[in-house]
């Protein structure tokens, strides 16, 4: 379990991270989003014991980042936003070097290395020199390095930058798999659609302040309490709006340019089902009825402009 309590970092007058608090349980995958300079990297570096917090603290499985940094370091895998790799060694030697540092007995190392290379899809590059790997492959090697000691918490600072769409999809799968294995994963990214796919929690940070935190659905609902339902109907549209408006939980209904009915729903899924039933009962021939997908980008734009409801 990761517990962050009132974590704060100031640089002179500048408050880079302002009293951040949240908790994550094993299996949680947190999408950490924020504008440039919001304080994501600063937060992640504090949790990974690289930066000393000005005040506040965090603990991972009971190990405090300030009182027991060694214990914390054994539990975390950190992938920085910018990094270099030793380029005079082969991929497996690089991993072997770190496996040694993390105290993995030399007998187990070859199998551990093969496993992480497999996970990150680098098996074919096992004997290639690090300097001969492409940027994206180096990124994956770095991720492999984070995994050699089977950490409980992964801190990935913009891990997807530099990856091709296929590698991104694979990274998503890998992160989901890590979540299923019961690890806590924190992923910071600017590419929002990417996060929406696999995070179960989001944290939105701006100017060092956590504007929103919670389950993806929760956060989206806090920003847009209305769920939007799109209905498309064959033939007559007359009366649809009036019928919809009469249903429980509906706050607004209109017909948009493309001819589909957009209904703002404040109620539960129960109400949504009732709405569909009523519309059908009134003889409207619905061929599509869907709730608008969670749109993190909207949430992000709304929150970071400061216009939260």
């Amino acid at each position: 379990m990761l517990e962050i309590r009132n974590l704060r970092k100031t640089y002179g007058d500048l408050v880079a991270v302002r009293d951040l608090s949240f908790t994550l349980e094993p299996g949680d995958i947190l999408g950490f989003i924020g504008t440039n300079g919001a304080g994501k990297t600063t937060t992640i570096r504090m949790v990974s014991t690289l930066l000393e917090p000005t005040s506040g603290t965090a603990s991972i499985n009971g190990f405090d980042i300030q009182r027991d940094p060694m214990g914390v370091r054994r539990l975390i895998g950190y992938m920085p936003d910018f990094f270099g790799l030793y380029d005079d060694v082969k991929a497996w030697e690089y991993l072997d070097f770190f496996a040694n540092i993390y105290g993995i007995p030399s007998k187990q190392r070859p199998s551990v290395i093969d496993n992480v290379l497999e996970l990150t899809d680098l098996t074919t590059k096992r004997d290639a020199f690090v300097q001969s790997l492409s940027r994206g492959m180096q990124q994956r090697l770095c991720l492999a390095r984070c995994l050699v000691h089977d950490p409980a918490l992964l801190l990935l600072d913009e891990p997807a930058s530099g990856l091709d769409p296929r590698a991104r999809a694979e990274l998503r799968e890998l992160i989901l798999e890590l979540g299923r294995m019961g690890k806590i994963v924190i992923v910071s990214s600017h590419i929002l659609p990417e996060l929406a796919g696999f995070c179960n929690k989001v944290g939105v940070i701006e100017r060092g302040e956590l504007l929103a935190f919670g389950g993806v659905g929760e956060v989206v609902r806090s920003v847009q309490p209305h769920r939007k339902v799109h209905a498309r109907i064959v033939g007559e549209l007359d009366g649809v709006v009036a019928t919809a408006m009469a249903c429980a939980g509906v706050s607004d209904a209109r017909i948009d340019n493309s001819g589909s009915v957009v209904i703002d729903l404040q109620g539960s899924h129960e109400d949504q089902a009732e709405l569909l039933k009523t519309l059908l009962a009134k003889g409207h021939r619905i061929f599509e009825f869907r709730e608008e997908a969670v749109n993190l980008e909207d949430v992000f734009l709304k929150l970071t402009r400061g216009d939260v409801n």
Partner: peptide, 14 residues
């Protein structure tokens, strides 16, 4: 300079 330092700093090494 080469930004490999973070990996040592974040490892359980004194």
């Amino acid at each position: 300079e080469k930004r490999t330092w973070d990996f040592l700093a974040v490892a359980p090494l004194t």
